[in-house]
């Protein structure tokens, strides 16, 4: 069956569409800030592992930058999930305090550890700059001996709050957004939105060719090539999807289904902004969908995974794979 017939039509211009698009864009901004945060972590790790010669200023500015990024992330999260706002800010304030603590003394005020038996090449524990940096890294990601409340944990929590909130809204959305006149075709289940056009353009029939979106094309490439989009025997697993796409970006998630899945991707010439972010609840085994090379985190609410800063070819390959896996018959039978 022709995929074009499978794609839903967004017929009516609707203020809810504007809201949906803005929400999508805000969520992507959250992801962007999260990425920048992760980059900062990575930079710190690189410095300590690479035995860089650094000064205290490097470490203090790292701390400042992390707090700033967190600040931005929290704000985005509060816009998307206002009901969790106070909790988010409370936690954020705690982390800010921790940052101030680190800035105030850190490695310099700690007692010196004189361990004469230490290998002389193990310089990390002695230089105050390195000591401070390791404490900062502990605050970022923790270590097995001392888990505590890390920035990474906080970041994951933020995602959970936001995704939960978006899920709740989706239920209402599918009613509001596509109420009038769209016939439900049992075979089709993807609503297609041009992220920037559909807010203001008179509704038109959207096809895959209409939307000039690189990630969307790749995502549906194998699917497009004729594999069944859905196992119609498995009505139980029937899912409605919504894809909001622009030239280089794709937001693809479940709209109405009994499992939750979300994919965000950017595929462009500019390597630094490329990424794929995936969320799946526990009814789907995320490792079966993704290629290796994704960083995976498991939370109570679901699984998160991401791959950052890859070349466009890598992103494209990954998208083809994910698309194929997601709509593959076998996966759905869980």
């Amino acid at each position: 069956m022709n995929i074009l017939e499978k794609l839903k039509i967004v017929k009516h211009k609707n203020p809810d569409i504007i809201d949906f698009c803005i929400e999508t864009i805000r969520f992507r901004k959250l992801l962007e800030n999260a990425q920048a945060l992760l980059d900062l972590f990575e930079d710190g790790y690189e410095k300590i592992l690479g035995e860089y010669i650094l000064d205290r200023h490097y470490v203090t500015s790292l701390i400042d930058n992390v707090v700033e990024r967190l600040d931005l992330m929290i704000y985005d999260a509060c816009v998307l999930a206002p009901e969790s706002g106070k909790e988010l800010y409370t936690q954020y304030d705690k982390h800010k305090l921790k940052a101030e603590e680190l800035l105030g003394g850190g490695g310099y005020s700690e007692e010196k550890s004189f361990d004469n038996n230490k290998d002389s090449s193990d310089l990390n524990s002695v230089d105050p700059e390195y000591k401070l940096l390791s404490e900062v890294l502990k605050w970022f990601k923790g270590d097995p001996s001392d888990p505590g409340e890390t920035v990474m944990d906080f970041m994951l929590q933020i995602y959970v709050y936001v995704l939960k909130s978006l899920e709740t809204k989706n239920i209402l959305k599918s009613e509001a957004l596509f109420k009038s006149g769209i016939s439900k075709d049992p075979g089709s289940n993807i609503y297609l939105i041009d992220l920037w056009k559909d807010a203001v353009v008179s509704p038109k029939i959207r096809t895959l060719d209409d939307i000039n979106s690189i990630p969307l094309k790749y995502f549906l490439m194998d699917v497009y090539n004729g594999r069944a989009l859905q196992d119609s025997k498995n009505e139980k697993k029937a899912a409605t999807w919504i894809a909001a796409a622009s030239e280089y970006s794709l937001s693809f998630n479940t709209l109405k289904s009994d499992f939750q899945f979300r994919l965000e991707a950017t595929a462009s010439d500019y390597k630094k902004s490329n990424f794929i972010f995936v969320f799946a609840d526990h009814s789907v085994k995320i490792e079966n969908i993704l290629s290796s090379g994704f960083h995976i985190e498991k939370t109570d609410y679901g699984q998160l995974a991401w791959s950052l800063g890859a070349a466009s070819e890598t992103i494209e390959d990954n998208l083809i794979l994910i698309g194929r896996n997601l709509f593959h018959r076998d996966l759905r039978q869980m």
């Binding site: 035995e51 010669i53 650094l54 000064d55 090449s121 310089l123 230089d127 105050p128 700059e129 390195y130």
Partner: peptide
């Protein structure tokens, strides 16, 4: 004047 510099550069 920062100890870390000489200490790390010398062996390197």
């Amino acid at each position: 004047d920062e100890n870390i510099v000489g200490k790390r550069l010398k062996p390197a």
